[in-house]
Write a protein that binds this DNA or RNA. Structure first.
Length: 526
RNA sequence: GGCCCCUUAGUCUAGUGGUUAGGACGCUUGGUUCUCAGCCAAGAAUCAGGGGUUCGACUCCCCUAGGGGCUACCA
C-alpha cells in the first residue's frame, strides 16, 4: 500500500488510449503534452493501452496508434513493446491485478456484487427518465447481505461489482489547470467496477493502473473531469495517494462542435498520408491549448520541451484550423536543410509515380549548379536503390526544388508544382491554354522562340534569358508577351517558378518540343 | 432533466482592476517582379449579453445566452 508515496519526487505520466480507432488529433495532443511534460521534468512517459472494451478494441487500431505516436516522435519510456517495471502495459493482460484489488474492496465492504440484469437496469432508467429524475443506479443490490450475495454467486448468477458510493458529503480535488473542484457524493451513483464478463470498467482500471504504475500526473482531456470524482473515491478506497490532475481543453471543429470526420482530416495518419511534416504537426498541436508567451509560435520539438509548462495550458476549447496548420508546415519546410527537402520530395515523387521521369533531361552546363545556393552535400544513401536514375536526376531535382523556392510549401503540392518536369501528361489549365496559346500571334512567337533556342549552343540560364529578351526586342514586344505564352506552353499553367529556370531544367530538347507543340496548337487560329 | 466545464477579432492566443487590449494564421491594399509564392509596408476586425462590486472593470461576483462534457456492464 501507499506505493506511490515514497516515489513522490518521480514524475511519471502516461498516455492511455483505447485501441478503438485511429490516433486522432485530440489524442495526439494529449500524448504530446504528456510527452513534453515528462521530458521537461526529466520524468517518465508511459504508454498504456486501455483495451477493456473487448468488442471495440482492434489490433489494427493498437498498431496504428503506436505508429502514429512514433511518426510524431513521441517515444515512450515504458509501454507494451518496451521494457518497464510496472507492466504489462496492456489492460487486458492485467486482470489478475484488477481482481486482487476488487477482492480487497469486496472484503472491506467498499464494493458489492450486483445481480441486476440489464433488462432491470433499463426498466429502471426508463422509469427515472419518465419521472424526470437523474438516472442513477437505485441500489437494489447494495443492501444484499453477504449471505444473499454468496448464495446468488453459488447459483452462478451473473453479476457486476459496484462501488459503494457514500450518500452524503462531497469529494474534492485540485486540477493543475483549472483549480479546485468539489462534487456532491449524492450526484454520483454506485458505478460499475467489474463488468459481468469479468473485465474492469474504464473508471476502475484507470485508477488501479495509474496507482500501480505510480503515475504522478494524470494529464488527459477535460471530458474526464466528470469522471474524476468517482476516481478520487476509488483512490481513497484503495488506499492510494491521489495523483495530480491536469485536464486539457477539447479540440473542436470549425463549427465549435467536437472534432469529427465531417470536419475533414482528424486522424494523424491522414496528415502523414498528405505528406505533412511531423515536426509541424507537433508544433501546431502544441499550440492548440498552450502558448509560450503569446508571441513565439514556431518551435522545434526540442524547443517545446524547454518551453512547455502545464501552467500555460489554457482552459478553453480550441478550434482546429487547417489553414494555420498549413502555415506552420510551410514554415517548418522552409527551415529544412536542402538535403532533407530532396529526400522528402523524392519520396513523394516516387509515391506519386512521377519518378523516375518519363523523359531524360541533360543539364548541359553543370556550371549552373554553382549558381544555386544548395551547398549541402546530397545524402545519396537516403535515396535508396535508384542509383542509376539517381545519378542524373538528383542534382536536377535539387535545382528544381531550389527554383520552386517558397512556392513549395506543402509536400502534397509536389505533383502539381513539379509534374511537368517529370512527365508530358502534366495537368494543363484549360483557361490558360485558351487565353495564351490558342492565338495566331502566340503561335508565331513561340515558333520563333523555339528556333532561337534551337540555335543556342549552351542551355544555361543566362543564355536562355538573353535569347528570349533579344527575341522580344527584335519582335518589339514586352518580354512578358513572350514569357507568358512560353510559361503556359512549358508548364500548362500561368504560374510557375522563374521561367528561365524552368526552361533550363526542362532541357533544350523538351523545351523546344513543347514550344513547337504549343505553336502548332495556335497555328490555325487567328 | 441533473451535475460540471468553457466564453478576448473568422481562428489560435497574450492579458489577472487603470494598456492606444499585444502577437500569429486568415483576409484586404500597396511595393518588389516574367506569373505565382516569398519578402517588405500598411489596413480592417475582438473583450457573448445584462446586472452588480469599485473612483475605475476584459480582468472580481451574480444572472442569462451559446457551445461542450458526464450522467453506460464505452473509454
Amino acid at each position: 500500500m501507499n506505493l506511490v508515496e515514497k516515489h513522490d519526487d518521480v514524475i511519471r505520466v502516461r498516455f492511455a488510449p483505447s485501441p478503438t480507432g485511429h490516433l486522432h488529433v485530440g489524442g495526439a495532443r494529449t500524448a504530446l503534452y504528456n510527452y513534453l511534460y515528462a521530458r521537461r521534468q526529466g520524468g517518465v512517459f508511459v504508454l498504456r493501452i486501455e483495451d477493456t472494451d473487448a468488442a471495440r478494441s482492434t489490433k489494427e487500431s493498437y498498431e496504428g496508434i503506436m505508429r502514429g505516436l512514433r511518426w510524431l516522435g513521441l517515444e515512450w519510456d515504458e509501454g507494451p513493446d518496451v521494457s518497464g517495471d510496472y507492466g504489462p502495459y496492456v489492460q487486458s493482460a492485467r486482470s489478475v491485478l484488477y481482481h486482487s484489488e476488487i477482492d480487497r474492496l469486496l472484503r472491506e465492504g467498499k464494493a458489492y456484487r450486483c445481480f441486476c440484469t440489464s433488462e432491470e437496469l433499463d426498466a429502471m432508467r426508463v422509469e427515472q427518465e419518465r419521472k424526470k429524475l437523474p438516472p442513477k443506479y437505485t441500489g437494489t443490490c447494495r443492501c444484499l447481505t453477504p449471505e444473499e450475495s454468496e448464495e446468488r454467486l453459488a447459483r452462478g448468477m451473473p453479476y457486476v461489482v459496484r462501488f459503494r458510493m457514500p450518500v452524503e458529503g462531497d469529494v474534492r480535488f485540485t486540477d493543475v489547470i483549472r483549480g479546485d473542484f468539489s462534487f456532491a457524493n449524492a450526484e454520483l451513483d454506485d458505478f460499475v467496477l467489474i463488468k459481468s464478463d469479468g473485465r474492469p470498467t474504464y473508471n476502475y482500471a484507470v485508477v488501479v493502473d495509474d496507482a500501480h504504475m505510480r503515475i504522478s500526473h494524470v494529464i488527459r482531456g477535460d471530458d474526464h473531469i466528470s469522471n474524476t470524482p468517482r476516481q478520487v473515491h476509488l483512490y481513497g478506497a484503495l488506499g492510494f495517494k491521489l495523483p495530480r490532475f491536469a485536464h486539457l481543453p477539447m479540440i473542436l471543429g470549425s463549427d465549435k462542435t467536437r472534432l469529427s470526420k465531417r470536419h475533414g482530416a482528424t486522424s494523424i495518419d491522414a496528415y502523414r498520408d498528405k505528406y505533412y511534416l511531423s515536426e509541424a504537426m507537433v508544433n501546431y498541436l502544441a499550440l492548440l491549448g498552450w502558448s509560450y508567451d503569446g508571441k513565439r509560435e514556431l518551435f522545434t520539438v526540442k524547443a517545446l520541451i524547454e518551453a512547455f509548462s502545464l501552467k500555460k495550458v489554457s482552459s478553453n476549447p480550441a478550434v482546429f484550423d487547417p489553414a494555420k496548420m498549413e502555415w506552420i508546415n510551410a514554415e517548418h519546410f522552409k527551415m529544412l536543410p536542402q538535403s532533407r527537402k530532396i529526400e522528402l520530395v523524392y519520396e513523394v515523387l516516387e509515391k506519386e509515380g512521377l519518378f523516375p521521369p518519363s523523359f531524360e533531361v541533360d543539364l548541359s552546363r553543370p556550371v549552373d549548379l554553382k549558381l544555386v545556393p544548395g551547398k549541402e552535400p546530397l545524402r545519396v544513401e537516403a535515396i535508396g536503390d535508384a542509383e542509376r536514375t539517381y545519378a542524373k536526376e538528383i542534382p536536377r531535382l535539387a535545382l528544381i526544388i531550389d527554383a520552386l523556392g517558397n512556392r513549395l510549401k506543402l509536400l502534397k503540392d509536389v505533383p502539381d508544382l513539379m509534374g511537368y518536369f517529370y512527365r508530358d501528361d502534366y495537368v494543363r489549365d484549360a483557361d490558360a491554354v485558351l487565353n495564351h496559346l490558342m492565338k495566331k500571334e502566340s503561335s508565331v512567337r513561340l515558333a520563333a522562340l523555339a528556333d532561337e533556342y534551337d540555335r543556342l549552343q549552351y542551355f544555361d540560364r543566362a543564355s536562355v534569358e538573353e535569347a528570349l529578351r533579344a527575341l522580344a526586342d527584335r519582335l518589339e514586344l514586352q518580354s512578358g508577351e513572350l514569357i507568358h505564352p512560353c510559361r503556359v506552353a512549358l508548364t500548362g499553367k500561368t504560374v510557375s517558378p522563374d521561367i528561365f529556370w524552368v526552361v533550363v531544367l526542362l532541357g533544350k530538347a523538351k523545351t523546344i518540343q513543347r514550344l513547337r507543340a504549343a505553336a502548332a496548337l495556335g497555328a490555325e487560329k487567328r
